[in-house]
Design a protein around this nucleic acid. Structure first.
Lengths: 346, 346
DNA sequence: AATGTTTTTTAGATCGATCTAATTTTTAGA
DNA sequence: TCTAAAAATTAGATCGATCTAAAAAACATT
């Protein structure tokens, strides 16, 4: 019995060998066809393609990755996918990579440094061809430098890591808050707060720099009590604005770390019977789709995620193609979109 | 010159062989340690672990996948990650899978059947251990059945595929719209529309069924003109509600396919100088975080994405563990969260 | 000390594609 | 027709882990 050829072997996987046999070529030739090489004649190519279709061949990437030391996949880590800014970013990156036949392995780090570290390890293990990383605040230089040891190309998105020279794509945060402060000043606000975000985030540092500089440029002294940190969430914004309202001399307006925080701040104001856009000015950052929807509609500094994603994807592909290419930093210019949340009717 | 040992070989990858050599054991033993096998003595285990750390060993998953015909990765396809419902779903799935040391390969299909098909192929190519799939509307039976051929376990999320028997996790859509209709009737609405979504979506079909049944149960005739399709987006909802308002006998309330559509509908109403919650009732579906934030706050049928994700992940892991296990369908009960968008002050 | 068990370790084959370094075939040129 | 060059094809080694089946070591039992 047991000497009989096994009957219950449900079905072996179709491999290149099967295809090659069927098309009467060598494994090597079949492999060339697979990769669209111009070395192979069109007659053979067609024959192999026909066999592949006939047998239902499916490429085994694990085998290819092992041999070629490259997976045709890239890793993408964002800190918070529930933030529409990142959701849009992810979509644009995926679309672009898909076009180039790259797979995208995505992870949400939730700003957790350990999780991020595991992600990097895992990407090395998967032989990812490159990484798009929105680093969690507090990411160390060492963390990033190990990627060089692994020769794993990486483009940073939206946030820097101090003391590293990596490709980077982001928005001009300083210009963003500069515009926001100037607008708020122009409509009569004098005490303007900067609300939310984590102090370790480079994006926040830059936004804060623009804020401080512009205040100083307008002869307004920077008041540290008007700058509060918070988790990057609605709840964070909610709590932070309440804190501000407790001050003996509370602000009349706030520039928020981003729109999500701004939404929370608006709720916080309402819970204290203040009306954003009437007796308090709010400006967000990112200009996500919801900014136009909430009431009052949120004024926001627009940094189009699709463009950032697009640029980052393109840059990473270029970097993968030429690891020796000089480091690039692409800074996109933001725009201030004024809606109804800044108003200050004295 | 060229006979010299190559000096510029930057650094070979550290493999199990290196570790084994350093720890003075065989490759096989080192592999066992890697997988936490109980076959190996604790003394050897420690020695191997030490060598791994010392040499900076990183697991090569491609090699492991090839040999073991399993990648310890699962595929996750959702239709629209910019929808916070799916964003939350993704997070909960990722968290759970991460816990079990599975990687998640995510794709956004944008409801594109071709893209979805490529995703499935790609997952087979990557030797994914399983799939979590929110099928795009119009997904064919064949598409799904090929997964069986590939012996690729799959759990469907939130939407069915007709005539298939796959594991499934979703909400009781019929119960959801039943509650919504009953609530709207109870506060005096008589002409209630069903707004948005794609007719091919099983989720919509179920929601529509609940809607129709409940109307009939309350002796209200179903009026087909009150049911409109739309893309699942804000813009879709915006256009759809305007269409409804054009009717000679327009509705006084609408149950929306989901919250995103509902937000668009609210904007559409406002653009026609109607006030949702005052002269028109709106109910959404999903109860995403923004529902509480918009003004008026949106009443919505709550189906917690985290719970669905959690359940789906658990089910998939069980299925991977035991492919012969009977098919399971997990239906979670929704809740109606009443806020300020239904009101109808005659 | 001899034997049987259990625990621990291992050699060698293997997964399925790609790479290298040829070889074979075709085309071009004289 | 012959040779050189170009185009097309291929055999065999290889990537780095896991699996199988068996051997070696450690431990009991008589």
């Amino acid at each position: 019995m047991s000497n009989q050829p096994k009957k219950n072997v449900s079905k072996k996987r179709i491999t290149l060998i099967d295809v090659a046999k069927d098309a009467e070529v060598s494994r090597a030739t079949a492999s060339l066809v697979l990769r669209g090489s111009s070395l192979v004649s069109s007659a053979t190519r067609d024959r192999v393609h026909a066999s592949m279709k006939k047998l239902g061949y499916v490429y085994n990437r694990a085998a290819a990755s092992l041999r070629a030391q490259s997976s045709h996949a890239i890793g993408l880590a964002v800190t918070d996918i529930t933030n529409p800014f990142f959701a849009e970013l992810v979509i644009s990156i995926e679309a672009r990579m898909d076009e180039k036949n790259y797979s995208v392995l995505m992870m949400n780090t939730s700003e957790d440094l350990d999780k991020q570290e595991r992600f990097l390890q895992s990407m090395h293990g998967y032989q990812a061809d490159g990484l798009l990383l929105c680093p969690a605040p507090g990411t160390s230089q060492d963390t990033i430098e190990q990627l060089k040891l692994w020769q794993l190309p990486c483009v940073l998105i939206a946030r820097h890591v101090p003391d590293t020279d990596y490709d980077y794509v982001g928005a001009d945060n300083i210009a963003g808050t500069t515009m926001a402060v100037e607008h708020l000043l122009s409509i009569g606000h004098q005490r303007i707060a900067f609300l939310g975000g984590s102090a370790q985030s480079s994006a926040r540092q830059e936004r804060l720099t623009g804020y401080k500089k512009t205040l100083q440029g307008n002869n307004i002294e920077f008041d540290p009590s008007l700058t509060v940190e918070s988790p990057v969430s609605r709840d964070g914004g909610f709590a932070a604005v309440k804190e501000l309202l407790q001050l003996s001399a509370p602000p009349t307006a706030a520039i928020c770390y981003n729109d999500v925080v701004a939404f929370g701040a608006m709720l916080g104001l309402q819970s204290e019977s203040r009306q954003p856009g009437v007796d308090f000015g709010i400006v967000g950052f990112d200009n996500i789709a919801d900014a136009a929807l909430v009431r009052p509609a949120l004024s926001s500094i627009s940094i189009p995620p699709a463009q950032i994603g697009e640029a980052a994807a393109r840059l990473l592909l270029a970097r993968i193609g030429d690891p020796a290419m000089p480091v690039q930093r692409i800074i996109l210019q933001p725009e201030l979109v004024i809606r109804n949340s800044c108003g200050f009717h004295r």
